[in-house]
Amino acid sequence: MNEALTLLSFGDQGWGDTIARGVLVTVTLALATLPFGLVIGFVIALAKNSSEPSLKLAANIYTTIFRGLPELLTLFLVYFGVQIGLNELVKLAGYDIYFEVNSFVAGMVALSLVFSSFASEAFLSAFRGIPHGQFEGGYALGLSRFQTMLLVILPQLIRLALPALGNLWLILLKETALVSIIGLEDTLRESSIAARVTKEPFLFFGIACLIYLVLAIISSSGLARIERWSKRGEVRR
């Protein structure tokens, strides 16, 4: 027991500080992905909700692809594909520089693609929950389309989409673990390094699981609070 505590302590003897740095990377990656995923997801949902069939179809192709591919494969496609594509472009332009894609950025891009395609479905079903009269009311007051969307629709949309988006956030937090495979030093990678060096795999992978669990618990309580806040204007029945 004492031995395990020494291994987990901060300082030269333990791995606590290394793993803590990994946790920071995990949380940063998830937080950095979130705004991109949300914005792209919202735009895709708008496209799916539009009356233009070609736009609808284009958006549906996007979601079909990124919802159907395994997250790990999307990650590899982005990581290797972007690297090859960029280097080909540079070669075409006549320069002789070799690019290497940062694993953090690759992870962010891949996770944004996946997150946005799922988020677009969440937004879309929230759109269906808003009666058409809300749009018409906005236009009748002389608001422009953009203003109606921003001031009338979006606040209601967020409230309706929040439970689904909360679930997606929890999934995103878990999926960041995959980025450790392409070398990002996140929680899982730091713990597997510690496990290999100390030959205590059960301890360190157990700790990694517990860290993810704690992150999930913190997130759910935070999400519950946000949900309560978003419902503050609702009539109590």
Binding site: A177, L188, A195, F202, F205, G206, A208, C209, L213
Partner: peptide, 23 residues
């Protein structure tokens, strides 16, 4: 249920494949 739904599948796999090697 909370444990298996709250942790990444990859971490669970490592815990079982490498972790059980401790025993």
């Amino acid at each position: 249920v909370y444990f298996f739904r709250g942790t990444p599948l990859l971490a669970q796999t490592f815990l079982i494949y490498y972790g059980f090697g401790s025993f």
